[in-house]
Amino acid sequence: MIKAENISYSINNMLLLDQISLAFQPNEISMILGPNGAGKSTLIKILSKQIKPNKGRVITNGNVLQNISQSELAKTQAVLSQNIHMVFPMKVEEVVMMGRYPHFSSKAESNDKEIVLEAMKLFQVDEMAQRNYLTLSGGEKQRVHFARVAAQVWPDGKQQLKILLLDEPLTFLDINYQLDFMKKLKVMMNNQPMTVIGVVHDLNLAYKYSDQVIFLKSGKVFSQGRKEDVFTTSSLKEVFNLNAKFILNEGVRHLLF
């Protein structure tokens, strides 16, 4: 389990996060939503140890995050960021292999190569394994990074919890790949105890695939909980200034705005 305890973060006297306390359960997808500037990305950066909170702490698998070494953390936790900009040519399979780097010291073992192959297959980039990453389209590049991050936290039969943090990962993807990605995430979660925490912009996607939802507004938690409880007409109005409706179709509640 991951717990954020009383986290505050400010930069240049601007308070970006104000006393955030949250808990993320194993085998759940938690989505952090909020308007621009709400502090979503900052929160992901703190949870992934990229920046240190001014106050409060993060507890990951029972340990204080600040006390876990970077290299140990990378064995169980992967982060998928937006906008990865590469300048040098590399083969797709070499990029995906980087996800295995935390797991071996100097040469990839057969186990690592297998996982890379599996991860490339899962995200349908195995056909372009030998291609130069720089020549791919934006969506293809993003799928390569999905495969890389998946390879990093690939199910290994151990019961240790793996953590996947997603910072607006679906930006460049066609809608079918977005849905596809979420489904594949669920497949991976079936084979491995895993906590997924994501920042997404698409309310419908969050509504469809999340277990827990957190609404952030101006650096504070506006509401959190089961998606059915958090997604309400009044909260959507207050957080996103959105006039939303819900409709029932074949027993499933859908969000309309």
């Binding site: 140890k49 990229q50 990378a74 982060v79 960021s81 900009h85 300048v87 980087m98 935390p102």
Partner: peptide
């Protein structure tokens, strides 16, 4: 090699 993904990604890879 990991630096090629950018500094924060390298950090995420340990």
């Amino acid at each position: 090699n990991t630096l090629m993904l950018g500094e924060s990604e390298a950090g995420n890879l340990g």
